[in-house]
Design a protein around this nucleic acid. Sequence first.
DNA 1: GCCGTTTTCGGCCCGACTGTTTTCAGTCG
Length: 572
Amino acid sequence: MKNSSIARIFQDMADLLELKGENIFKIRAYRRAAQVIEHLPQEMEVMREQGEDFQRIPGIGEAIAKKATELITTGKLEAYETLKAEFPDGILELMEIPGIGPKTAYRLATELMITSVEKLEQAITEGKVAELFRMGDRTAQNLLRQIQSMRRKDQRVPIGEVLPVVEDILEMLRRHPKVKNMTSAGSLRRFRETVGDIDIMGTADDPESVINAFVTFPQVKEVIAKGPTKASVILLPGFQADLRMVEHDSFGSLLQYFTGSKQHNIILRTKAQKKGLKLSDYGITDTTTEVLEKFSTEEGFYHRLGLQYIPPEIREDQGEIELAEAHAIPDIINPEDVMSDLHVHSNWSDGADSIEDMALWAKNLGYRYIAITDHSRGRGIARGLTEERLMRQIQEIHRLNQNLKGIRILSGIEVDIRADGSLDMPDRILAGLDIVIAAVHSSFNQSQEKMTRRIISAIENPHVDVIGHPTCRLIGEREPTEVDMETIFNAAVNHRKALEINAMPDRLDLKDIHVYRARELGAMFAIGTDAHNRGQLTLMRFGVGIARRGWCEKKHVLNCMSFEEIMTFTRR
DNA sequence: GCCGTTTTCGGCCCGACTGTTTTCAGTCG
């Protein structure tokens, strides 16, 4: 059983225990465990095979370790089944609706026999919900709206869809004459691959005028709530955004608070408490004097706690607070460190623009070199290069390199890894290229054993430098392939091959926790946009965001090497 | 249920909002 499923079950158990009125701290223990497991950089199945002790994971003790083991070995959990049987069906589904917690869900299920969202909708319409004690018409109507908005939103939105919209809005807000600060917070600022609600925070001399301007922006489809310091709207693409205007002198602590993650903040508070400090979104209170200290910057806030500043992308309770105490936060990669794009297509295969155009645009982005990596001919890939066309392309790149100033082009290929693990281009051809990305583009449904073996074969080929989009997932469209990631990472480390962080926003493959784990094992990474036209070269920042979430430093990323260094790396 | 330079018991993060009722429970971030 995968970590995500294990986490889901512990999350459900927390909800069920809450319904039962269990000890709140027991419930929190389950929630924490669920969250920790979901963000583990390694599958628990694999950890078990390697004989690792789950109890060494913070937040997992004897009881939960045992339950996790039961889930992994039997696929079921006795305690969970028993617990589920105590409650009406559908009650967990009701708790998914914002505004319905355990108490309300239990009352709806037992007093009105509601067992699904549909039945709840019906009961509200018939006025039955409003008649319940301590409920009212207003509450009922709000629930109805939440149900409708839940259907509309469906789920979290990929960061690739959210970020451009939010950046437009931020720019418009910053142009407002009264605005001093304006930034996004929440999971968007932490650069998670999907984003729930969007939080925007700012300060201004006349906050209300900023709120008034915000709700009339053309991107706003519907205004849900609007007050003097806060507004909630639905944007045209369908997702919700909250703008919160705060005081200048507490902007830092509020931004910190609303950036999260929740778990990061909880750990911060627990630690602060031991030092006699109380944290809240308004600042830090000394519990002996009850004096509240405010912070206009996040840096000031962290420093007051004796901590080094922690970049938003790594505020996920993965040990960053302990490192910040020791002033040992790694110097993670920045967008300006990137000197190249290592996965670029041209109109020689399925790209839209010429090699020269791609190179010139890359130069404008400040890059020193790019790798042209068109597809090989492999089945199903549009206009893949034959041996003969690849040879001509190499000559064309040679010619361009003699004429172009300020940018170098690496001749490369994205060679298909066939279903049997062989490559779609002979070794003698691959040997003549500057860089070779090998990637899977077919037979995605192979067994884990077969797929793992298939990728290992590619890693073992001496001419391959990078494994492209290792899991082949498309966010919201195609599930990742079944691969034993740990084995792949170890093989890549042993053969000194890089793993790709594909920056295409619907791929982000490897994903954050994979990068974190592979880096721990000693892997190198190549960030590539997989650009199929000039404009897509700017998608690099999505790859950098994932690298940052995986705690990558410059030294872990091929793109940060000089031209000479990368040629040495690929020619080894 | 987890955790420990407060170690095997006794703690465990904090505040605001909403809708209801008249002092607060429930939910959320």
